[in-house]
Amino acid sequence: MRVTVQYMGQLGHLAERSEESRELPEGASLLSLLEGLSAQYGEAFGHIVFTGENRIRPSMMVLVNDVPVEKTTPPVLRDGDQVTLLAAIAGG
């Protein structure tokens, strides 16, 4: 299946893109996607996405089809889903 991923904040800077379409195994979860992205874009990316306690970082907002997801119970993804990762920013 294919999902679209949009990046905001430093995640887009680290991934060097604003958006991309990605192929995922059928039934893959949001966690599996985030782990794959972290492996691909490196530790700094993974550090923004995950805490050391194996959790999605509370300060990062995750939207699936524009709806914020409950980060403690990350959903299974479906073909055509749009995932948006909003990393915290503070530029002034």
Partner: peptide, 26 residues
Amino acid sequence: AADQKAMLVESFTGRFPGRPIVVASG
């Protein structure tokens, strides 16, 4: 290759959730 890393992680954890995978970067 960075995109291969993601392919491996996604296809392994997608099929075997929770099974540990150790990756390296940097």
